[in-house]
Design a protein around this nucleic acid. Sequence first.
RNA 1: GGCCCCGUAGCUCAGUCGGAUAGAGCAUCAGAUUCCUAAUCUGAGGGUCGCAGGUUCGAAUCCUGCCGGGGUCACCA
Length: 587
Amino acid sequence: MSTISEILSSAVGSAFKAEGLPEDLGLVRTSDRPDLAQFQCNGAMQAAKIAKKAPRQIAESVLGHLEGDTRFSRVEIAGPGFLNLNVTDEFLTSHVNAIAADERLGCPTVENVRKVVLDYGGPNVAKAMHVGHLRASIIGDSLRRLFAFLGDDTVGDVHMGDWGLPMGMLITEVKREQPGLIYFDAEQTGPYPVESPVTIDDLQRLYPVAANRCKESPEDLDEARLATAELQAGRPGYRALWQQFFDISVSEMKADFSNLGVEFDLWLGEAAVNDLIAPMVDEMKASGVAEMSQGALIVPVSEEGDNPELPPLMMLKSDGAVTYGTTDIATIEHRRQNIDPDLILYVVDQRQHLHFEQVFRAANRAGVTGKAELEHIGFGTMNGADGKPFKTRAGGVMKLRDLITMAIEAADERIEEFGLAEEIGTEERAGIVRMVALAAIRFADLSNHRQSNYIFDLDRFIRFEGKTGPYLLYAAVRVKSLLRRAGDAGIVPGEILPPGDLERGLVLMLDRLPEFIQAAYERRAPNELCEFAHTLAQEFSTFYQNCHILSEENKALQASRLALAQLALRQLLLVLSLLGIQVPERM
RNA sequence: GGCCCCGUAGCUCAGUCGGAUAGAGCAUCAGAUUCCUAAUCUGAGGGUCGCAGGUUCGAAUCCUGCCGGGGUCACCA
């Protein structure tokens, strides 16, 4: 199903074609000047160069071809050659009724279904998730939902950091604390105890200790490096101990992601591709893609025109251990073997851009990508009020869990303050508080363009006024309430009638959903979805303010307006679901 | 130092196929509620789009230089 803009583009495009001009000059879009027209086309001014004629003259000719078209209520030329277009209310009506009858609310699916792997989240074994994981998780999760909605075959992979130096540091640190464990006896090959010798709290306590120790002492760092290399080489005790770290960490992560409402299809990490590395490295050596340099195995990735040269990708360090570049390449190989994707999206901090440039080039040289296009979806940092990366009051890194707790407390206060949900039971109320908190966090994050840094200001995000998640929840809940009341009174949504001045703005907005979905998809930009949700909610509020539905005496008009409210709700709920925001039944 | 990103209203941010009078939210001011959740809506004020050039009929948008901020530059991830 096409949007009105697309339908009009086709009509105006034909008119340009009839004039011997390129059809795509007929592109019609929503007007920048709603006071002048509903839609506009700027093609005549672009055509002026090609045709070497005055733009207004071209516009006149094009307009001539549109005269018999009954869909237009008014077509005129303005300024240097803008075509200003208005459509009839009858045309608007037939279109909006078609949207209401469409399960997908007017949104098409992609023509060519692609298999798309989304790599996001990136939590680390043994480390508590912190605010830095927030963006990776919710942007990736939202893009996965969006791609899936448009019909792509999506696979979300959490891609844990579970295989690098931190693992070696932890092994040596546990050894320091509990040297007698069977895991450290090089003569032993198992079996090993089922019970873990450490808890998640132990890991989270030990990791910073180990990291500090390695920072201060080169000897300790060497020891950790050795342990890392031995782990990766397959030393049984270390593998068994690592498995314990992994298992207790994953259940911790799952709890965190579940709190955030973020979902994955695959829970793989760097370790999962370890067995692919040796053969892959051999082949890269044999083919000459990889070469030795200063005792390490590298893949040169610099290309003609780079200024300066791009540093090579490190495949094996001089101690034989792999780096995250190695596992990234092996992960691509793994995905090709098991999934064979058309596209892999890496939703990772913008600061890693150079790294991904190296990885993508090396992967292409090594020929491991198959048919997959590789794309880094970078994002900016979340900052504190001072504009610097977000910290706790004490200056440390804030845990994700603490952030969510803060948001829940703030949501609880706001709801209390406004005397909301007073007659709602404790359990349901707790659910509402949680939904408000998550809507606040997710909407605030996703409504910023992903590439830019933003300032985390919970007091602002949690407000019910303005461009916030809670405002949208409120808007949606209000419509739900309206529909419930209408249902109780036996009023049912009917055919949408030609809009009057009170409805037209809402109707025009309801037509634009596919345009925003498409923009979000093409640019991997969830903020387009936020923009639509907010504007639609505002248009609805205006309509709601001016049109009292339940007391409307004209039954056909009442049924029509109720249908508009229902359609607005369906679109709002759809877009919020793509943002990963849940809406309560009441609040 | 090289390279990348950013600089838009008092504040927080949208605005990348170049288009008309640069938008939104907050804050400020003036209004609206016998009625479906006013946590809302209507209106007003507020801008040399960092600075200076260039390309173009037309530049926040493209190009060059400069100023300011952030990031990054092989054996951490």
